[in-house]
Design a protein around this nucleic acid. Structure first.
Lengths: 344, 344
DNA sequence: TTATTTTATGCAACCGATTCCGTTATTTAT
DNA sequence: ATAAATAACGGAATCGGTTGCATAAAATAA
């Protein structure tokens, strides 16, 4: 029953015969407090078991040391790694991380970001929901000078921080890789085209074909809604029924790619000889499926770390309305068995 | 540049000629405010775009509407699903969720829980780190009447909420399943035995053998440190070199089990005919590996939901020092190809 | 030596909601 | 009709830091 009384800066002030302001400043290493005083105060704070009340500080500053995250779903390998990176970086600096899931619904994203806004977060890291087109729900942050970092799934316009990969080049290289393996009819599992990442991957795919003078066949480009396993299965079956089926598939994610590998194999198609497949993300399933899936590696944790740093370093001075710093990370093609015809 | 002024209950009070106390009470549906007044106040609050300042409320109550989580790692299928469940349930009630990762280090867990404590969380949900043995860092919460829910990896003693699965029965049934498939020499990939979950699974394994009068061979019980893919590979190779190798493996997680399947297959061992394998968790990789992995399903999201509810429903009245409500969820054996000899 | 900075610290007003303790009408009981 | 109970609301302190504006002392400049 003994609710240990929390000690405050006032207790420290009384103990040390200083004013609360001095205590506060000392604990924050304010320059106008002498080193000796700071040291003394910090020591007794330690001894007395002082714990700063972040709520009080937050109230005063109208800002909590907290980073908010809005993503589609936590339980996706890419997303959980991203969060992991953010969390580690944030915690180093004494920031908390609060998460919210949109489940790829625009409405949820709006509600969640509102809730985060109300929580006085110091910054927001967003990977847009699949549905999101309107971006008004982010303007409140910008108005208040609260940094917003779009990661991976970023919007086109809107001046703000962005941490993305070069989807175009990745798509180009993945397709080029298939071409180099001798593929001449390459299909593409495309994601929703209003999401930058899928748009970039498709463009890269198209340009790679063009540059190698391979005719583009619209029949081979399948637009997915969610790039799920089931969709992948359906698409693969459809492709294999074609009079002239593809000899290569570049999928915009690993789930659909793995699905293609398994479906094709079940139908007796030889992989990679008859059909070479490459995915995107390097999810754990990619190395488990047989034959193992070639893919494009996605530096998820690193993206998380960088996003967090963007927020932690965002000085409030830069109240310039239009901060636009875009970080583009590069990706690697990971060649595994599903596309390696030359057994290099 | 126009930093929109946030409106407070004082603004509402002025506007409506009420006192701030009345506004506050009305917004919280206090019984001593008339329905009409409440309605009127809430309406104009809506119109004027009022947003409650959770920091101020938190400061006053010494409690933020926030649930803290301490887990080993976010980017594990089980953990991210768990968090997903917690987040959904919490958000429904207007709570935020803040996460921290221990990376299975005791020291991190201690630091993280301290940080969460300082953030005045309303409750803590913990899945213990692999190293944790001492539990003193949780006592501060109990002293303050802040509910702590141990989920999955729970401690033995310590009165508090627990949400776990019946690891013993799961281990028993998994082993029994292998026996029913005709296995007579069944190996076990065991996890750290001071963690309840691994202890239970092993006990279930042992008892299943005893009850079916199968001799226990210590050579077949391998104690893992982290149940990683690499460890699984090593263990499998070792087992297969035995003069009399096992014809079945019950692994305490899927990662090691998948590793066993792949390793054994590479060595020409027929699965499930010569070696039947069953894992634990039902991770995504389980259904991708070939042959697909039999496993024990782990209701991760549900566990998260229940854990969150425990905290949300924890009335502060129950200040009884010793709340001990244990929720035991049941698991299902999922039979896939890696153990299905009878092709039922 | 006197004037001017610089250094170190204190005062007190916030930040926005909550709540104990009244006070004044309005009912209900006697 | 008067006492007692109830309903509806207001006053003001409180939560624990933060910070602009003094002020006093010490250091430096003139």
């Amino acid at each position: 029953m003994s609710l240990k009384k929390e000690i405050t800066i006032y207790d420290l002030a009384r103990e040390l015969n200083y004013s609360p302001s001095t205590i506060s400043r000392a604990l924050n290493d304010h320059k106008s407090i002498s080193k000796k005083t700071i040291k003394k105060i910090k020591e007794t704070a330690q001894e007395m078991g002082y714990r700063p009340n972040t709520l009080a500080a937050g109230l005063r500053n109208n800002k909590s040391k907290t980073i908010g995250i809005s993503i589609s779903r936590i339980n996706r390998p890419f997303m959980s790694s991203l969060i992991s990176g953010i969390e580690e970086e944030a915690r180093k600096s004494g920031y908390n991380v609060i998460i919210s899931q949109s489940h790829d619904k625009y409405e949820n994203e709006v509600n969640n970001t509102k809730a985060l806004y109300d929580s006085r977060i110091s910054g927001l890291i967003v990977s847009l929901s699949m549905e999101t087109i309107k971006l008004d729900h982010f303007k409140q942050f910008m108005k208040q000078g609260i940094p917003v970092v779009f990661v991976d799934r970023a919007p086109h316009g809107l001046n703000s921080y962005k941490v993305v990969i070069d989807n175009y080049t990745a798509g180009y290289n993945a397709t080029k890789h298939l071409i180099e393996q001798g593929c001449t009819r390459i299909a593409h599992f495309a994601g929703a085209q209003h999401r930058n990442i899928y748009e970039g991957r498709k463009k890269g795919y198209l340009d790679a074909l063009k540059e190698h003078e391979i005719e583009i066949d619209d029949e081979l480009i399948i637009h997915f809604k969610t790039l799920s396993f089931e969709e992948g299965e359906k698409a693969t079956k459809k492709l294999l029924k074609l009079p002239s089926p593809p000899d290569g598939i570049f999928s915009a994610n690993d789930t659909a790619a793995v699905s293609a590998v398994m479906t094709a194999k079940k139908q007796g198609v030889k992989i990679p000889e008859e059909l070479a497949v490459i995915g995107f993300n390097d999810d754990p399933i990619a190395s488990i499926v047989e034959p193992s899936l070639s893919t494009v590696s996605h530096p998820a944790e690193k993206m998380g770390r960088i996003s967090a740093k963007r927020i932690l370093n965002h000085s409030d001075k830069t109240h310039d309305e239009g901060i636009s710093e875009v970080t583009v990370l590069h990706t690697d093609i990971i060649v595994r068995d599903s596309s390696n015809r030359k057994k290099s």
